Simulated assay, not measured.
Amino acid sequence: MHALVWAVVLLGVACAGSGVLALVLRRRLTLLRADNEQLRSVVRRRMERPQIFSHEVRTPLALIRGATELLLEGTPGPLTERQREFVETIADNTAQMTQLSETMLTEARIEAQLLTLRRERVEVRSLVRQAVSELRHFTRIPIELDNTGARISLDGDPALLRQALWNLVNNAVRHAGPGATISVQVSEADETAVIAVTDDGAGMTDSDRARLFQPFSSPPGENDRHGTGLGMLVAQRVIAAHGGRLLIDTIDGRGTSILCALPLGDPATSLPPPAADQETP
């Protein structure tokens, strides 16, 4: 009889304890949800600054770019060789600043985990052709394009893929140096679109390669050649988000090849955290 009484008492205590535990857990869950919403609000507010910055910078840059394109086309009248050289310099640096503002905004969205892929059917050869055509207007380094063959289509975010490709070719332009030639080749192998960006320029030293995906890591005074590093970081993350990868092959003094491999399947739609290092074939 006593054992039965104790069993009932212990059962009552256990039920009361589970009820208290449920209340505690429910309260903690409510607090966690509130904290999560507060953190989301902080992130959204932090994102407003780069968005405003990007808008305020891109608007005047678009006007400058439009004016330089009209000058280069000879709309107001013919330019002397010296004048054309100055206008091309303005156009080149305007394009660099426009791309930098877009890259900074994309990188801020990725860091805040607020950026997802807006997928649609993308024809890879057409995307590459448009990007190379645009870049040819803003650099004096020749860019050769090998882009013949059957259509290559995948589901992806065309704006982000274009930005990643622009950054890859622009990186080659910066590292190649004067007198070099950039070549861009598009092919398909094993259900994978392969975009190869190659230059026959100076190549990269071991230290250059180690800093390739590390923003703002160039020594003072070297940013003119190496850039901020944001472009390659964003390119790496965007390609990874599409289930792809970047392969780097470079020899100091002999040029660099960057292979971008994009699967034609359907990877996840959220951008992952950055990879620690570049891959090597």
Rank of each mutant, 00 (worst) to 15 (best):
V5Y: 13
T228S: 15
E48I: 11
G177V: 10
M204T: 01
N36M: 09
R49L: 15
L161K: 08
S183D: 07
L63E: 11
V234W: 05
S183K: 11
V13A: 13
V234Y: 02
G74T: 00
L117H: 09
R254I: 00
V186K: 10
I182T: 14
I143S: 02
E88P: 00
N36P: 03
W166S: 13
L161W: 02
V197D: 07
P215A: 05
Q185C: 02
L72S: 07
V8I: 11
S133A: 10
Q113W: 05
T280Y: 12
A67M: 03
E37V: 07
I110P: 01
G179F: 08
P78H: 05
V234F: 09
L39A: 10
L259I: 09
A91W: 00
A67I: 07
T269N: 08
Q130Y: 08
V87C: 06
G156T: 07
L105A: 12
E102R: 08
E111T: 14
V57L: 14
G201L: 04
L271P: 04
W166T: 14
G255K: 06
A180V: 05
I141P: 01
D249K: 01
R45D: 06
T68V: 12
R33W: 08
T103M: 00
V169K: 03
F213K: 05
H242C: 08
N171L: 14
A22L: 14
G201N: 04
A62V: 00
N93A: 04
R121F: 00
V194P: 03
L71W: 06
D266G: 06
E85R: 13
A210T: 11
D199G: 03
D208R: 05
L115V: 04
R245P: 04
R28C: 00
G177H: 08
A196E: 13
E111S: 01
R245L: 12
Q99G: 15
R211N: 09
A16V: 02
L31F: 10
A196N: 10
V124S: 04
A150R: 09
A22Q: 11
P78T: 07
R27G: 01
H242K: 11
A189E: 11
T103S: 02
V169R: 05
R40Q: 15
L29P: 00
G231R: 05
R140S: 10
L233Q: 10
S101A: 15
P281S: 13
M232G: 02
R119L: 15
A176S: 15
D266S: 14
V128H: 10
T116W: 13
T269F: 11
S126F: 00
E144I: 04
A235V: 04
F138G: 01
A268H: 12
R129K: 09
P76A: 05
G19D: 03
S270T: 13
A22T: 11
W166R: 15
S218R: 12
Q163Y: 03
G243I: 12
S217M: 03
A14E: 06
